[in-house]
Structures are given as structure tokens and as C-alpha cells.
Design a binder for these strands. Structure first.
Length: 348
DNA sequence: AATCCGGGGAC
DNA sequence: GTCCCAGGATT
């Protein structure tokens, strides 16, 4: 496919035949308020999850004046279970703004509509094109995926530069007079044919012009690099010193930092650590104030460590191979579990 | 550019 | 379990 190739008519033809019949697509012309509500509800939410909420919403809040007059409690009740509740609060506030500042008419220019709470680039483009027929792009997850394949774009589609690149490609493809239908067609195409995992290229009306398919890369595109959130675990560590020796513990032979040595620690606070050393036969006393903190990042979790100093006040280590009193001068004689090696350095 | 914000369905 | 979904606000 040449860069300037125009394929939107092919997609529109497909859309006219196979496009989905959805509750928010029934008015002709389309009601900007209904388009708005549907777009907000559909953010990060599947069509089938939205359907019942949309219907119920329109029964309760059929127009802008009704929603503007509603209480926040009523609004949140209608949204309950749909998730991302700031969407409901923002929509409510923005609708009140439209009622107060724009005579209850959704503004028709991008600047004003973008200024509304909860309306970003995507939603502004969707409303302007679908409700008002303006030639605006509406670049969502579907569009990013579809264009990454059609144009064989192998950059991370979640990055700013690639989004910008794709937005320009969409803009250049918008057909005169059918901008809204084109944007909706891209959504349906992304949801029905050019789906995330295994694209249905056998049924694809654009297979002939798809650059990823031509390159044999339709299964590996798009590249979508998501930072999966790494949980932070609070870890309490106690450095117990007695006559120049440290009380240390060997981790289990399986799992994280297997068989490495560490200071007594745990995720259940000081009491948890006291209980742990007691199980080894050593009673300890711990200072009230920590001597420091340490953050250690693994690939899959983060230890937020708080380090205390303590002393032995009774007992003795039972016969166990996974506990020992280590002379400080022998600090290098054992393999330390990652961050605990840093603690030995801090202890100087 | 990272993070946070829900919930559910597909796999 | 992981991925992903018609994103936006905040930092």
C-alpha cells in the first residue's frame, strides 16, 4: 500500500453491511448528549458491559437538563458497578457546565469541548465527528491497533510519538461527509475483525492493503508495552547484634533469593520479626526508632524496608542450620540476599 | 512519561 | 492467573 492510498471507502462499505446496531447509534441525526454519554461509558469498557447501563441511564437522565438537575448521589447510583467512577462525577459536572454556559447545547468547537471535565482528545473527536460530522480523528485503542497493522508500525502504540503518527494517518484518511461513520467503522472493525489476539484476516475487507499482513507480521503487531504495576511490600528488618556478631537467617532453598542469608525480617511489622526470632530460640529487644529505610526493586515486587537495631535479651539459637550468629568480620563469608548486603554496608 | 482509577470477559 | 478494553486526570 502506498502511503497516500485511500481505503476508507472500502471500510465504509464493510461498515454499511456489517456495522453493529447499538443503542446509542439509533437517532438520526445523532443526539450529541447521547453520543457523549456513550463515549464516556465506553472508556476502557466493553460494549456489552455498557449496554444495560446506557439504557438505564437514558431512562433516568434522558437529556442534559435532567442530568444537570440530578444529585450526585443519583448519578453515582446509576453508575454503580461500571467502574472508573470519576467518569460519572466529571460527566455530571461537565453537563452542568454545558447547561449553564452553553444553553444546554454541547459545544461544537474542539477548544470548548476539550475544556469539559472528562473529555480528552479521543472523546472530543468522537463527539465532534459522530454528532456534528466534523472531520476529526478519534484515536482509541482499536484505532491504534488497526493502524499499527495496516501500516506495519512497530513502535510502541502506547507511546506519545506513535499515537501522534497514527493520528495524522487517521486524519488523512477521513472521508468527506462521513467522518463519524468512518470513526465508528474503525471501532467495529477493531472489535470484530482486527481484534487484539488473532486477527480475522480471512474475513478482512482490507487484507489486500494491510502492510503487516504483507510482511507476515499481522500476529506480532501491534507492539504494546504496558508497565504492569509492581506491588510494594513493606518489610521490617531487625539487625540484632551481640558481642560483635549478627543474628542472621538463611532463606528457604526454593523461591525468591533462595538459600541466601538475611537479617531477621518480615512483612508483619516488628511483632512479626520478634515472633520469627523467638521461633529460632532468640528473644530480642528492639529500638523504638528505625535507623534507616531502604527500597529494593525486583522485577515483580518492591521491598520498602524499614531497618531497626535490636539486642538479644535471652534464649539461644536452637539446633538449626538456617540460623547463625555471624561475626561481623566474616561479613563476606556468606551470600547475602540482595538488599541485605546493602544493610551490612549501612551498618558500618 | 508514569500512575492511578474498576470491573468483567476472553483465553 | 494475564491481557485488554470506544481514556482522562494528575503528577
Amino acid at each position: 500500500m502506498k502511503d497516500g492510498a485511500l481505503w476508507s471507502p472500502v471500510l465504509l462499505q464493510w461498515f454499511d453491511a456489517y456495522g453493529r446496531d447499538l443503542p446509542w447509534r439509533r437517532d438520526v441525526p445523532r443526539d450529541p448528549y447521547k453520543v457523549w454519554v456513550s463515549e464516556i461509558m465506553l472508556q476502557q469498557t466493553k460494549v456489552e458491559a455498557v449496554r444495560p447501563y446506557y439504557d438505564s441511564w437514558m431512562d433516568r437522565f434522558p437529556d442534559i437538563p435532567t442530568l444537570a438537575a440530578a444529585s450526585q448521589d443519583d448519578v453515582l447510583r446509576q453508575w454503580q458497578g461500571l467502574g472508573y467512577y470519576s467518569r460519572a462525577r466529571n460527566l455530571h459536572e461537565a453537563v452542568r457546565e454545558v447547561a449553564a454556559a452553553y444553553g444546554g447545547k454541547v459545544p461544537k468547537n474542539k477548544k470548548d469541548i476539550l475544556a469539559l471535565k472528562g473529555v480528552g482528545d479521543y472523546t472530543a473527536g468522537a463527539i465532534l465527528s459522530i454528532a456534528y460530522g466534523e472531520a476529526e480523528a478519534a484515536v482509541d485503542g482499536n484505532v491504534l491497533r488497526v493502524f499499527a497493522r495496516l501500516y506495519n508500525i512497530d513502535g510502541n502504540i502506547l507511546s506519545g510519538p506513535v499515537k501522534k503518527e497514527i493520528t495524522a494517518l487517521v486524519q488523512a484518511q477521513i472521508p468527506q461527509g462521513r467522518a463519524g461513520a468512518f470513526n465508528e467503522a474503525l471501532m467495529d472493525f477493531g472489535a470484530m475483525i482486527c481484534i487484539p489476539k488473532h486477527p480475522r484476516c480471512g474475513e478482512c475487507p482490507l487484507a489486500d492493503i494491510c502492510m503487516a499482513k504483507r510482511a507476515g507480521r499481522e500476529q506480532e503487531l501491534p507492539v504494546r508495552i504496558v508497565k504492569k504495576k509492581v506491588p510494594t511490600e513493606p518489610v521490617t528488618v531487625v539487625v540484632v547484634e551481640d558481642n560483635g556478631r549478627w543474628l542472621i537467617h538463611r532463606r528457604p532453598p526454593q523461591g525468591l533469593l533462595a538459600s541466601m542469608w538475611e537479617f531477621p525480617n518480615g512483612t508483619d511489622g516488628l511483632d512479626g520479626v520478634r515472633q520469627l526470632t523467638a521461633s529460632a530460640g532468640v528473644m530480642i529487644d528492639v529500638d523504638d526508632q528505625p535507623v534507616g529505610t531502604l527500597k529494593h526493586v525486583f522485577s515483580h515486587k518492591i521491598w520498602q524496608m524499614t531497618i531497626y537495631e535490636g539486642r538479644q535479651i535471652g534464649g539461644e539459637i536452637a539446633e538449626k542450620e538456617d540460623w547463625q550468629w555471624l561475626p561481623r568480620r566474616d561479613v563476606t563469608s556468606v551470600p547475602w540476599a540482595g538488599p541485605h548486603g546493602k544493610i551490612t554496608a549501612m551498618a558500618r
